[in-house]
């Protein structure tokens, strides 16, 4: 199971190896639930270690992002590797309506800024 860490109002899940569909579904369910328990405002999914993102996984990420939004929080996908992005685009996969940032640091900065503005 992929550990979900909490840093103030942000949940961070780091994928550390290849994900099966079932792993991804479990992670998705866990994150959607945990947003409520922890009253998180943001979720960061770090995919740095992921070597393939196919159409199924991409759809799961879009669904996850939508579900988290319905729960009142925002999702940021970080760490998509250059060759993974290249293959996705070649295959015709887009990640519309999903926020992405380069890495964990950028993801945290984005969410912290969004959170400050939201309650400005």
């Amino acid at each position: 199971m992929i550990p979900i860490l909490q840093q103030s109002e942000i949940l961070i899940a780091t994928v550390e190896s290849a994900l099966t569909d079932v792993d991804l579904q479990k992670l998705s369910k866990a994150l959607v639930g945990k947003v409520g328990q922890s009253r998180a405002r943001g979720v960061i999914l770090d995919l740095t270690a992921l070597d393939v993102l196919d159409s199924f996984a991409s759809r799961m990420l879009r669904d996850l992002s939508d579900m988290i939004r319905m729960r009142g929080a925002e999702t940021v996908i970080v760490g998509i590797q250059p060759e993974v992005a290249f293959s996705m685009v070649q295959l015709g996969i887009t990640l519309e309506n999903v926020t992405t940032r380069l890495d964990l640091e950028e993801g945290l900065e984005y969410l912290n800024k969004a959170s400050r503005n939201g309650r400005g």
Partner: peptide, 13 residues
């Protein structure tokens, strides 16, 4: 790595 990733992605599909 690019070529290998494209093949791996195709295999996945």
């Amino acid at each position: 790595t690019n070529e290998a990733t494209m093949i791996a992605t195709a295999v996945s599909e």
